[in-house]
């Protein structure tokens, strides 16, 4: 992939994602939520991660929406406007509205954060965090988990093959399968724990847990404009939270969704910047 544009600092995209999510939650309107979710989807496609993001989001959101629809669409005791009724199940306008609100809000939240995690360069994020004096252990856990995951998958496949070759038939009823799962878990966990023991000593000998301040080999570019943006985005998010909690939220404007008031463009801008994180 040609690197047309230098990537944004991971903190910038993280701040954008957080600000977008917080403001969407504070706005509490399905129209805003839907706009943010769609914007995130468009930007994901433009950043070239659409194909990976779509199934990931669908796996999370589809069962969630279904669950909401059944839960609130059919059973909403607080509902007044009854549209249909079968025995205990009542379809109410309020229930459907609640399901819509919650469904779109969660969709916006999921899309924005998936866009962040699918576009961020993890080594950059870890490097930036260690420069910001986040305990280096945090970056270690984050990066190591993501490198370990494929290795564990390979190992599990190997264990399964070795055991099948020993005459363990991995078919049959649920109890059989449970027993087979136990036989695979034990060597997997033992091996992982033993490997981890060796790695601990190796990390210690490479100075990992030293009290000294770390430096970073990887250089992550940052600009004054990005720093300003981060400050503005986070301030806007804090303002939105303040307005909402203090009860001074300009409710009506949001419901109409036409008024170009402050937080809404910022939320969209935040998402826009997020997508610049990865060169298209």
């Amino acid at each position: 992939m040609p690197n047309r544009r230098p990537a944004l600092n991971p903190l910038t995209t993280l701040a954008a994602a957080v600000a977008a999510a917080v403001m969407t939650t504070a706005a509490s309107s399905w129209a805003v939520s839907l706009a943010v979710a769609s914007a995130a989807a468009v930007l994901a496609v433009r950043a070239g991660v659409g194909a990976r993001l779509a199934p990931a989001a669908a796996v999370i959101l589809a069962p969630f929406w279904l669950s909401l629809l059944i839960m609130h669409g059919l059973f909403f005791p607080e509902g007044r406007t009854v549209l249909a009724q079968w025995g205990a199940a009542r379809v109410t306008t309020e229930g459907l509205g609640f399901a819509l609100d919650m469904g779109t809000r969660t969709a916006a939240y999921v899309m924005v954060f998936l866009l962040f995690s699918f576009t961020v360069r993890l080594p950059d994020l870890v490097a930036v965090m260690s420069a910001r004096r986040v305990p280096p252990q945090f970056g270690y856990v984050l990066a190591s988990t993501l490198t370990l995951a494929p290795a564990v998958t390979v190992r599990l496949a190997r264990i399964r093959q070795a055991q099948e070759s020993r005459g363990l038939v991995l078919r049959g009823g649920p109890l059989r399968r449970l027993a087979a799962a136990r036989q695979q878990m034990v060597p997997l966990v033992l091996a992982l724990i033993q490997d981890a023991g060796d790695r601990a000593q190796a990390l210690d000998s490479r100075g990992f847990n030293a009290s000294r301040e770390r430096t970073s080999y990887r250089e992550v570019p940052d600009t004054a404009a990005q720093r300003t943006f981060r400050a503005v985005a986070l301030a806007a998010a804090a303002a939105a939270v303040g307005l909402r909690i203090s009860g001074h939220w300009p409710e009506g404007l949001w419901m109409v969704g036409l008024w170009p008031d402050a937080p809404s463009p910022v939320a969209l801008l935040a998402v826009a910047l997020l997508a610049r994180g990865v060169p298209a």
Binding site: Q137, T145, I193, G197, Q201
Partner: peptide, 22 residues
């Protein structure tokens, strides 16, 4: 997390990614 992580010995720390994968 910030309070606990730096106090953990490395032998415990390296287990955390393993636990997370599980």
């Amino acid at each position: 997390i910030i309070g606990v992580l730096p106090t953990l010995p490395t032998s415990t720390l390296v287990l955390i990614p393993v636990a997370l994968v599980l």
